[in-house]
Design a protein around this nucleic acid. Structure first.
Lengths: 185, 185
DNA sequence: TCGTCATGAGACACATATGTCTCGTATGGT
DNA sequence: ACCATACGAGACATATGTGTCTCATGACGA
């Protein structure tokens, strides 16, 4: 017995991440069109705009978190961990973009969780500093910013068709690791 | 005889760049409040939302272009040129953000000009590659993306209060130059 | 001091986006 | 083949944002 078609829901979600990244002011009608779905159907899945945004924030957080955790599960060094996290982040860049730019607005709780994950990142950066992976004279906050924004840069490159996700992630990793290099490298 | 107060107009423009960067869906009422002006006054300066966005796009393009041109006027090497351009870009980051994320939408013509300026940037990057400043194996498109996104990273750091514009720009420059380093450095 | 004019506040009409509903259709499970 | 139900299309009411107008106020220059 088929309840709500998962295909439809997924199509809406995927279209939403891409559309709202391109046009944050897009209407629900625009979204329905982009998802190839009727406007009424959109409301069957998500009662209203706030609920949709909250759901997107939650989904984005879960998927991003899981992707990074899975990717870095068997990393033995901070270097390997950051490299794998970068690849996972690029693959989930649409989610991270949403969280960074609509997250707090959409759902305060998810926004707080995202902030907490950024804090974790900064703690890992500090530990990596201890191992000489990052230059101590470079502020941790800057390294975190670079990590996030190079992810977006890679995503942009992918969307423009000038690189595959893997190629873009490799470039991001190269720039990240070389651009913030510490004494032990 | 005082015509339209430039103070008011400038307050609106400045508030608009900051507000629309934080909340792209903000209403004109929100903008008026943020700028500390009445909603009617906003309409006296800019007839409607599309006109406001067009004006912002035009202003952003002019100010960014002039700032970069002035800063790099007496640069003798590509290295110095890129470094000065980075500082100028960070100072004008709110303008660059608007152009990158609302520019085409706001005004097709300005959008085209912005794209042209990015093309110029890529040409300069290619020339700098010839001098060994950038690694030849790194795609020019990636270097351009990094330039833009490190600017945003620096702006973010400034807004969070964790660095002054100068400090942030220095960090961005360091990461940019080290992260994309060519054989001659 | 006086007059001009930009402004803020608020009322108003209008446009667009949002949310609900109905109905006919198609799809998938039984 | 039958039935349940998710769906698209479209009509409709409502909410929110947008744009216009009026009027009182205050600042500035003459």
């Amino acid at each position: 017995m088929t309840k709500i078609r998962l295909d439809t829901r997924d199509a809406i979600i995927e279209a939403a991440f891409l559309l709202f990244a391109e046009q944050p002011t897009a209407s629900l009608g625009d979204l329905a069109k982009r998802a190839g779905v009727g406007r009424a159907t959109l409301h069957r899945h998500f009662p209203g705009r706030p609920e949709l945004m909250r759901a997107l924030a939650k989904i984005a957080m879960e998927e991003l978190d899981q992707a990074v955790k899975e990717a870095t599960a068997d990393a033995e060094t901070f270097e390997e961990g950051f490299r794998l996290a970068m690849h996972a982040s690029v693959a989930m860049a649409s989610r991270q973009w949403f969280l960074a730019h609509q997250g707090v607005d959409a759902d305060e709780e998810v926004g707080a969780i995202y902030q907490a994950s950024l804090k974790e990142l900064r703690e890992d950066i500090d530990k990596a500093k201890d191992e000489g992976f990052f230059d101590r004279s470079i502020p941790t906050a800057w390294i975190a910013e670079v990590h996030e924004n190079l992810t977006f840069a890679a995503w942009s490159l992918v969307r423009s068709g000038e690189a595959t996700p893997k190629q873009a992630a490799d470039l991001a990793w190269h720039t990240f690791s070389q651009g913030l290099k510490g004494p032990n490298r």
